[in-house]
Measured scan of single mutants.
Amino acid sequence: NKFNKEMRNAYWEILHLPNLNEEQKNAFIQSLYDDPSQSANLLAEAKKLNDAQA
């Protein structure tokens, strides 16, 4: 299933973003579980936030 793979990839990438705190990571990961079809968008948002907090 495409979403499972996308979701897993997004999950791991978000988990390893160095500039997000636990609360931010948890919020993105919760959103992933709530709507796996948004994995790519959530990952993009997480990366933007990560870069902004660098």
Rank of each mutant, 00 (worst) to 15 (best):
R8F: 15
K5L: 02
Q30E: 05
E6I: 02
S31N: 08
A10W: 02
A27H: 11
S39L: 12
N41G: 12
A40H: 13
A44T: 14
D35E: 09
L20N: 00
S37I: 07
N9I: 08
N1P: 02
P36L: 03
L20D: 00
D51E: 11
E23F: 14
N4P: 05
A46Y: 01
N26P: 02
E45Q: 15
Q38V: 10
D35R: 08
A27V: 08
L43P: 01
A40L: 13
N21Q: 13
Q53S: 07
A27D: 13
N9K: 15
N41V: 03
N9G: 04
N19I: 08
K2Y: 04
K47A: 04
R8S: 07
L32T: 01
F28M: 08
Q30L: 11
N21T: 09
Q24R: 05
H16D: 05
E6F: 02
F28K: 03
A27G: 08
F3G: 04
Y11V: 11
Y11N: 02
S37K: 03
L20I: 13
L32S: 01
L49T: 15
K2D: 15
A40Q: 14
L32W: 04
S37H: 09
A54V: 10
F3P: 14
A27R: 10
A40M: 13
E6M: 02
N4Q: 04
K5S: 04
H16G: 12
A27M: 15
A54F: 08
E22V: 10
N50M: 02
K2N: 10
P36N: 06
H16V: 05
L17E: 01
K5M: 02
L49A: 10
L43Y: 04
K25E: 01
W12S: 04
L43T: 07
K2A: 06
D35F: 07
S31T: 11
Q38N: 13
N4D: 15
E6K: 02
S39T: 06
K2P: 09
N21H: 09
L49W: 08
N9Y: 15
S39D: 01
K5Q: 14
A27F: 11
A27K: 12
L15W: 05
K25R: 13
L20A: 01
P36Y: 03
F28N: 01
P36D: 02
E23Q: 14
H16N: 06
Y33A: 02
K48R: 13
S39M: 12
A40F: 12
E13L: 11
N41F: 10
E23R: 15
N9E: 15
D34V: 04
A52T: 09
S39Y: 10
A46R: 00
S37P: 06
F28Q: 01
P36T: 04
P18Q: 12
